[in-house]
């Protein structure tokens, strides 16, 4: 079982990766971050995307949809932002966040790789 650090390192090997974070959406704080920089403050991303995840969870409750969120894709002009919720037993309440450069990324491949990282990760 890879730990948080190795999982995040693996996420940076995904083509086009700009930064990644593992976030606790109960608190909005990151358990770990990698990459980012002055153009991408991952602490801000962690807090902001916590609101995104919470809003979607609440929306599903309101719609009466009894299902789980697997991932959330946000497409920007120049980037993709992927949010993948952890679903392993004992690892719920966390999500992986990955920012990708749209020019360099292969979305299908990135999503597949992130899914693999998520499924193997134990917090």
């Amino acid at each position: 079982m890879p730990n948080v650090e190795t999982a995040l390192k693996e996420a940076t090997t995904i083509d086009g990766a700009l930064g990644a974070a593992l976030v606790d959406y109960a608190s909005g704080m990151a358990l770990g971050t990698i990459g980012g920089g002055k153009d991408l403050d991952l602490a801000v991303a962690a807090a902001g995307n916590t609101d995104v995840v919470r809003a979607k969870v609440r929306t599903m409750e309101m719609l009466g949809i009894q299902d789980e969120i697997e991932d959330i894709l946000i497409t920007l002009g120049s980037q993709y932002h992927l949010i993948r919720l952890l679903r392993a037993r004992g690892s719920q309440g966390f999500f992986l966040y990955l920012a990708l450069d749209k020019q360099r990324a292969n979305l299908a491949m990135a999503r597949h790789q992130l899914k693999k990282i998520e499924s193997e990760l134990e917090v």
């Binding site: 909005g28 704080m29 801000v44 807090a47 609101d51």
Partner: peptide, 8 residues
């Protein structure tokens, strides 16, 4: 509360 946001 979102503690991450609170801190920021």
């Amino acid at each position: 509360v979102n503690i991450g946001r609170l801190h920021l």
